[in-house]
Write a protein that binds this DNA or RNA. Sequence first.
DNA 1: GTGAAAGCGCTAACAA
DNA 2: TTGTTAGCGCTTTCAC
Lengths: 346, 346
Amino acid sequence: MAKAPKRTSIIDLAEQLGLSISTISRALNNASDVSEATKAQVRELAEQLNYQPNSLAASLRSGRSHMLGVIVPHINGAFFPAVVHGIERLASTAGFNVMICQSSEEVGREQQHITALLKARVDGVLVSMSSTTHDFAHFEQVRRKGVPLVFFDRMPELPAVCGVVVDDYRGAYELTSHLIGQGCQRIAHLAGPPHLNITFHRHRGYREALLAHGLPYDERLVVPLPNSRLEGGAAAMRQLLAQSRHPDAVFAAYDFAAIGALQVVEEHGLQVPQQVAVAGFSNEPFTTMVRPQLTSVNQHGELMGEAAVQLFLQLLKRTDTFTGQRIVLKPKVMIRESSRRGQGRG
Amino acid sequence: MAKAPKRTSIIDLAEQLGLSISTISRALNNASDVSEATKAQVRELAEQLNYQPNSLAASLRSGRSHMLGVIVPHINGAFFPAVVHGIERLASTAGFNVMICQSSEEVGREQQHITALLKARVDGVLVSMSSTTHDFAHFEQVRRKGVPLVFFDRMPELPAVCGVVVDDYRGAYELTSHLIGQGCQRIAHLAGPPHLNITFHRHRGYREALLAHGLPYDERLVVPLPNSRLEGGAAAMRQLLAQSRHPDAVFAAYDFAAIGALQVVEEHGLQVPQQVAVAGFSNEPFTTMVRPQLTSVNQHGELMGEAAVQLFLQLLKRTDTFTGQRIVLKPKVMIRESSRRGQGRG
DNA sequence: GTGAAAGCGCTAACAA
DNA sequence: TTGTTAGCGCTTTCAC
């Protein structure tokens, strides 16, 4: 099979049909001012010659690429894939193609992706920050270029940024309250990486719930996690169990970490949830695979993705300013065996 | 913030420096025939004006986009994300950007993505087929355009197609042999969607292992799965347990299905692995989270992704034909509690 | 070491 | 309803 045969362009179609290239262009774009007969003719020949429009040329000329750039920290677990799915669904019905990029939790990659997307002249950028992002210059660059920028889940504390988040504070507050309601008195928290809004709000929800119920907030019961992985949760739990009085509940900012903690608790011969209740965050599918099933918080990933696209579409319309509009989704606490006391392992 | 300020182009740089646009272009591309002094000058102004090259224009003119299209069935679970990661790593070091697309197991979406990628003039396409793909015309179209096409994991039975797969036959054969070695005599198989090479080879490995060890191949012990989800595995297992003599082992083509099966087995009050051993395929992270831990087969996703990019790079060089080169990775059977007899649930 | 000029394939005024 | 024309921003000969 021969390689790189020069691909047919609208010029070829124009010549073979004895029409002008503009008519061809209009026909292919289904413009209203071209006769149906011509359209049919053009479409048939296009089909026959296996013509494929060059969107690079179209985008270059028109200034709109119909491309949406999406940057996620990773696609492990089920949350970000769900968001991506929501984004793709709505974007494609709105006529946009989606470019998915992973930052792998590295600011450097995030910056590279921003640059690449800007070079590719995407019509908008949707981002969930990496955990190592403390400087936001690359995001400002996007806005300075007049490119709509929407955050989801992890967003910076910047003035007038648009974004969709789940109410992490509320999720954490309700979850912690539930643990207290189950009789837990020494509730530990495995917190996410610092500087992340989700970390901040989940921690705050935990803290405020304790205080609201008359329990002390003890910093020794808060252990930071370097990432959302299982190993970190296990290490943090070991650290907690090494203390003189061990906690009677653990609320981890991530389901993976919660599983790690749960495994360590059981290794130490402690009963879950009777001696130590465990809860996570994200409602990963594996929360119902493990025994005991893990209590968690549903973040509605797909909805979040759709909301992000809606924000983007709004931004596209307005030509003047950035509104800083935010959408806050309501989380749903999923109570399962790992935190339900007075009930066995199912 | 004002929107859509006209972005600076090499013309602006040329004017402000009193140079020609070709010199600017060469300087930015670090061509060898531009003086270091000029390069420095150009780069400084570019930085200062926040200049961002327009890759649409560059690609249009040069004919190469440095973009790689990747189509995966989905990014649930850990396997495809791992492959994608491998692809991204190697591609980016080779100077390519990656566009990830999900077919969501629908041929229609797959075709749309192929079309979009071709329109965007990607330099190559890497695909893992959707489970509903029976017609391969859209793949032929890619090759006809002279665009390198590489498959991974799921590939069509087409002459001269390039691709990377794991040796599914071997994985299934070894896994089934292991089950037989544990004393299992009636081993059921939950097979993937038909028409998929992986389904075919996993089933064949299962079958041949039985025969090689003098066990009968019984079609009633083979139940098809509509997809890789948990529910399908559960339904299939219920069907098997409804038979007069239940199996003493189940080998599912997917880990998710295996978990579904495992849950149903336990619901029926049967012991795993003593009464029914269970094994899956893919070595998902949750295989070590559940109890008993699930025996599975590691497919080396990241390696597969890297190999796919290597094949692509080879294809880029040769200007004549498609070689149909294939890379077959060796799978690794991970034996865990769910199939280890004479040992408890850990 | 630098410049002039010709496009890549398409869209979008403006004409006819 | 269709044609003419001027670019979009860049790369790439070919000159000098």
